[in-house]
């Protein structure tokens, strides 16, 4: 299997932790709330899913519990940021640190243990095409992730619900005077973000690399946050950004396996360096950010 085939076959799976977490954060940010605790919610989702799969052997239950755990943590964040009007940055950081601590605590006696991953579901004939065929042979979560991307894209663009969420993020006071419950809508969006972060962590720990190691999320939650900015809050671009990062992390593996003589620490830093560079390029386009950005993002709303 050459490097290109390898990257094409695996990039969607590698993209899932980024994609699921970023889609959730996208919705939260579209409603005007920035949750910096993604990394911690992913870490908790990862450990809960790993423990469930390890003990009960079912991924469905693992994902369900991981999603609930992520949502529960995001509920604490929402309570701080929305009900108690705490600083969103500080509240997000607090949840992030708490989540990473809980993850390390629960996972302590499972270090280096493994669980079984998920089987691939292939689309007949398409998956037999040389080179690109691997793209059509993915596990169930990848297929559901693609479906979720399409659904969120369509919901934000074409449905009334999407319009209301965007309105709440753009101008909460106006949305409220139209009779929409701003705080309740923000609560829902933030909790959806927590749910998705939980799924993202579950995928990372029980499907993509079904092995427990403390700190295994390794900054992917932060990259997901950056992806939302790269994508200038557009669903399609979140998807392409996530796949790009998936491909980069696989290319890194392929390079190492292929004996490319590059320092392993440099390779490990690559996603972070790329994030910094892309962030600089996208953010410097102030007009783009202003047009696509969310006007009330991160600001405390007082009804």
């Amino acid at each position: 299997m050459n490097a290109l085939t390898f990257v094409l076959a695996g990039m969607l799976a590698a993209a899932m932790p980024f994609l699921l977490a970023a889609l959730g954060e996208l919705l939260a940010e579209r409603s005007g709330v920035m949750n910096l605790g993604i990394e911690g919610m992913m870490a908790v989702g990862a450990v809960i899913a790993f423990l469930s799969v390890h003990h009960f052997g079912t991924h469905t239950l693992g994902f369900l519990l991981a999603g609930l755990a992520g949502a529960a943590l995001s509920l604490v964040f929402a309570w701080l940021a929305l009900t108690l009007r705490a600083n969103q940055v500080a509240a997000g950081l607090a949840i992030g640190i708490l989540g990473q601590g809980l993850s390390a605590l629960f996972g302590k006696s499972y270090e280096s243990r493994t669980v079984a991953g998920l089987p691939k579901l292939s689309i007949p004939s398409l998956s037999e095409i040389p080179v690109v065929g691997g793209l059509f042979s993915q596990d169930a979560v990848v297929w559901l992730g693609l479906l979720a991307t399409l659904t969120i894209w369509a919901a934000l663009r074409f449905t009334k619900l999407g319009l209301v969420i965007r309105a709440v993020g753009e101008n909460p006071s106006a949305a409220r005077s139209l009779g929409y419950p701003v705080i309740a809508i923000r609560y829902s969006c933030v909790m959806f973000g927590g749910l998705m972060a939980g799924f993202a962590g579950a995928y990372a720990a029980t499907v993509y690399t079904p092995l427990w190691a403390d700190g295994m999320i390794a900054g992917r939650g932060w990259i997901a946050l950056a992806l939302v900015v790269f994508a200038t809050w557009m669903t399609g671009r979140v998807f392409f950004g996530a796949v790009l990062f998936g491909a980069v992390s696989l290319a890194q593996l392929a390079a190492q396996a292929g004996g490319v003589n590059l320092n392993s620490q440099l390779l490990a830093s690559l996603p972070y360096i790329v994030t910094i560079l892309v962030l600089g390029v996208i953010s410097s386009n102030r007009r783009l950010l202003k047009v696509n950005g969310v006007a009330s993002l991160g600001k405390t709303y007082i009804p």
């Binding site: 911690g40 604490v76 309570w79 701080l80 108690l84 009007r85 705490a86 600083n87 500080a90 509240a91 950081l93 607090a94 949840i95 992030g96 640190i97 708490l98 989540g99 990473q100 601590g101 809980l102 390390a104 605590l105 302590k108 403390d214």
Partner: peptide
């Protein structure tokens, strides 16, 4: 486990942010 210290730190900040409201 050592991780309990991180949980304590994180929950302390959560409680503090709630209290200073």
């Amino acid at each position: 486990p050592v991780a309990a210290v991180r949980v304590f730190q994180g929950s302390l900040l959560v409680c503090y942010l709630a209290a200073i409201t």
